[in-house]
Amino acid sequence: MIKVLLPAPLCRLAKSETIVELEVVAPITQRTVLDALEARYPMLRGTTRDQQTKLRRAYVRFFACGEDLSDAAPDDPLPADVVKGKEAFLVVGALAGG
């Protein structure tokens, strides 16, 4: 199971826990994890990435295992500990504003 940590506004929107566990078919990448997230929680479509281009929304960041994966290619493999379910893939609302 792949663990994904969601920011509080998206937890409220999805009526989910902070960390959700998803069945994701390999390869485990940013794209396949977000596809699985949106399939399980359709209300999250468009909230982390554009529905047409699939590009990350500007104020959303992705982290895992201490790495900033925000600008990683969507089809790059995620870190091994995320694949093993030991660490969560973090969806984070960027700090912006004063």
């Binding site: 920011p7 506004p9 998206l10 929107l13 359709p42 209300m43 479509r45 468009g46 909230t47 982390t48 554009d50 529905q51 047409q52 929304r57 104020y59 959303v60 609302g93 960027a94 912006a96």
Partner: peptide, 23 residues
Amino acid sequence: DWFGQVMQRSDDAGKTWETVGND
């Protein structure tokens, strides 16, 4: 500004809501 557009619909005058299409 962070998470974009969400659309909501209620069929009971706002007691409960469901997300609908936002594409």
